[in-house]
Amino acid sequence: MSEFTQKVSLGRTGLRVSRLGIGSAYGVSERACREAFDEGVNYFFWGSVRTPGMGRAVRDIGRLHREDLVLVLQCYVRWAALIPRSVEKGLRSLKIDQADVLLLGWYDRPPGPRVLDAVERLREQGRFRFLGISTHQRPLFRQYLRDGRYDVFHIRYNAAHRGAEKEVFAALPDEGGPGIVSFTNTRWGDLLDPKKMPAGVSPPAARDCYRFALSHPAVHVALCGPKNDDEMAADLAALRAGPMDPRELERMHRIGDHVHGISSPMSFLT
């Protein structure tokens, strides 16, 4: 047992969440999701790339254990009139009536009033409980924080991209702040690639990338994106291993600084 095996409150939402969340994009199997749930993982992110295995698992878990499940539904749709249709489709695909969090995905400009009105109507209709937002433009999070309507932030944070520590985490209030969820914890796999390590250094395991993010006191949940059962098992090891000690953190910083200097095809988009 480590402190990462215990659920925490997702900021001011009060939702009790596991420290590891599972993303839908990479093809994790239904069985792996169910086993992860049995090990205490309850944060399921139904992103814009949705694979059937996780969908089927969430349907089952939602039917049998809805009160223990925290379902996050992402919406990329930018046209206010179509947002309700997107949300309904997402919920219907999982046979769930209400998302715990509706995440407005990748808003590198603040949502306009029409989008926000459409979202508020959905909340009034009971289609979701808490509103979240993500962006790759970290300075915007301070604006989103001042805005006050967002209960959850999904933030890119890893050993190579540590800017969130100063730009976002430092601005969070001691209490009553949003839930913080880190994504891209492996920097799109670069932190696991032996070819991208400093000379003579072996790459960290995926579990260590999640441990790194979770070792920051501001981070409530680290999102993982397992492709198969083996990757899911390896990611779950992060929970059992617990926080990093100062020497492990120093090693991750060294690796992260090196990897930060290597361009990645995905960093083009951020």
Binding site: S48, P52, R56, V77, S86
Partner: peptide, 29 residues
């Protein structure tokens, strides 16, 4: 970026990919 977000937004609206129903007895909870 905008094209990517738009494309995935269209997937959401179309409900793609579809989550198939289970066959009888398959993967019971």
């Amino acid at each position: 970026r905008r094209l990517g977000v738009t494309l995935f937004g269209i997937f959401e609206l179309l409900g793609l990919p579809r989550v198939p129903e289970k066959k009888d007895g398959e993967g019971r909870g």
